[in-house]
Amino acid sequence: MNNVFREKTQWERKEYFNQQTSFSITRDIDISLFREDIKRQGYNFYPALIYIITRSV
Score class of each variant (00 low, 15 high):
Asn2Cys: 06
Asn3Trp: 11
Asn3Glu: 14
Asn3Ala: 13
Asn3Gly: 11
Val4Pro: 03
Val4Tyr: 11
Val4Trp: 07
Val4Gly: 08
Val4Ile: 14
Phe5Cys: 09
Phe5Gly: 05
Phe5Asp: 06
Phe5Val: 07
Arg6Gly: 15
Arg6Val: 15
Arg6Phe: 14
Arg6Asp: 14
Glu7Gly: 02
Glu7Cys: 08
Glu7Gln: 05
Thr9Val: 11
Thr9Glu: 08
Thr9Pro: 02
Thr9Asn: 04
Trp11Gln: 04
Trp11Ala: 09
Trp11Lys: 02
Trp11Arg: 05
Glu12Asp: 02
Glu12Trp: 05
Glu12Tyr: 03
Arg13Cys: 10
Arg13Trp: 12
Arg13Thr: 06
Glu15Phe: 09
Tyr16Gly: 06
Phe17Lys: 01
Phe17Asn: 01
Phe17Thr: 02
Phe17Glu: 04
Gln19Val: 15
Gln19His: 14
Gln19Ser: 14
Gln19Ala: 15
Gln20Leu: 06
Thr21Arg: 15
Ser22Gln: 12
Ser22Pro: 03
Phe23Tyr: 14
Phe23Val: 12
Phe23Arg: 15
Ser24Pro: 03
Ser24Arg: 13
Ser24Val: 15
Ser24Gln: 11
Ile25Trp: 08
Ile25Leu: 14
Ile25Ala: 10
Thr26Phe: 07
Thr26Gly: 14
Thr26Trp: 06
Thr26Ser: 15
Thr26Pro: 04
Arg27Cys: 13
Asp28Lys: 08
Asp28Gly: 04
Ile29Glu: 10
Ile29Pro: 07
Ile29Arg: 12
Asp30Tyr: 10
Asp30Asn: 13
Ile31Ala: 14
Ile31Cys: 09
Ile31Asp: 06
Ile31Leu: 12
Ser32Gln: 04
Leu33Met: 08
Phe34Asp: 00
Phe34Cys: 00
Phe34Gln: 00
Phe34Ala: 00
Phe34Thr: 00
Arg35Ala: 05
Arg35Gln: 06
Arg35Ser: 06
Arg35Asp: 03
Glu36Cys: 04
Glu36Gly: 02
Asp37His: 07
Asp37Asn: 09
Asp37Lys: 12
Asp37Phe: 06
Ile38Asn: 03
Ile38Gln: 00
Ile38Asp: 01
Lys39Cys: 01
Lys39Pro: 01
Lys39Val: 02
Lys39His: 09
Lys39Ala: 09
Arg40Ile: 03
Arg40Tyr: 06
Arg40His: 08
Gln41Met: 04
Gln41Trp: 00
Gly42Asn: 02
Gly42Trp: 00
Gly42Tyr: 03
Gly42Glu: 02
Tyr43Asn: 08
Asn44Val: 05
Asn44Met: 11
Asn44Pro: 03
Asn44His: 07
Phe45His: 03
Phe45Ala: 04
Phe45Asp: 02
Phe45Leu: 06
Phe45Trp: 02
Phe45Pro: 00
Tyr46Gly: 02
Tyr46Asn: 13
Tyr46Ser: 13
Ala48Thr: 00
Leu49Met: 05
Leu49Gln: 01
Ile50Arg: 13
Ile50Gly: 05
Tyr51Ala: 11
Tyr51Val: 08
Ile52Tyr: 05
Ile52Met: 07
Ile52Thr: 11
Ile52His: 03
Ile53Tyr: 11
Ile53Lys: 09
Ile53Asp: 03
Thr54Gln: 13
Thr54Leu: 13
Arg55Val: 11
Arg55Ser: 06
Arg55Cys: 09
Arg55Met: 10
Ser56Ile: 11
Ser56Arg: 10
Ser56Trp: 14
Ser56Ala: 15
Val57Asn: 10
